[in-house]
């Protein structure tokens, strides 16, 4: 008796478990990895887990894909989550694009995409500038890094 309740809890809700696993993997990668590109990958995995969450929630037991078929008695899965997730995927792609372009610029400016190295590179430049009208923190122009 207990067994089947437990099994039902685990196997019956496998989609949620999958979502949780992916979410945690994604967040872990974002937090624990120092490479900027890997962080973006983790971010994406995190976002994908959410997509799966929405879509799996939209499935109606015994329902078919929400595309019109000729059968008048057809049962469809909920189309709304699909629409929402299409939007969300686009947002995710745009975010990834912006993120990666930032990474490229960082690469050009710092010469590295490792977070630790970037922090070291920035740490040495925090002296407050002399107030003689001189330009502020001496910012190397982009593209001029070693």
């Amino acid at each position: 008796m207990e067994d089947s309740q437990f099994l039902e809890f685990v196997i019956g809700r496998y989609n949620y478990w999958l979502v949780i696993v992916l979410m945690m993997v994604g967040l872990y990668v974002v937090v624990a990895r120092g490479n900027l590109v890997k962080k973006l990958v983790g971010l994406n995995i995190f976002q994908v887990s959410v997509f799966l969450f929405y879509i799996s929630v939209g499935k109606v037991a015994g329902g078919t894909a929400p595309i019109y078929v000729d059968d008048p008695n057809a049962l469809y899965s909920n189309p709304l989550p699909h629409v929402l997730i299409l939007t969300a995927i686009v947002v995710g792609v745009a975010t990834l694009a912006v993120g990666l372009s930032l990474v490229i610029r960082i690469q050009r400016a710092y010469g590295t995409v490792e977070e630790d190295d970037i922090q070291i590179a920035d740490a040495g430049r925090d002296a407050s500038p002399r107030a003689g009208g001189a330009s502020g923190s001496s910012a190397p122009t982009i593209g001029g890094s070693a």
Partner: peptide, 20 residues
């Protein structure tokens, strides 16, 4: 970033946190 390259990392961090 033209004035200070740390704008790039600031933007990146903001991106990651904001997306989360």
């Amino acid at each position: 970033a033209r004035r200070d390259r740390r704008a790039l990392t600031a933007g990146y961090t903001y991106l990651v946190m904001g997306t989360i």
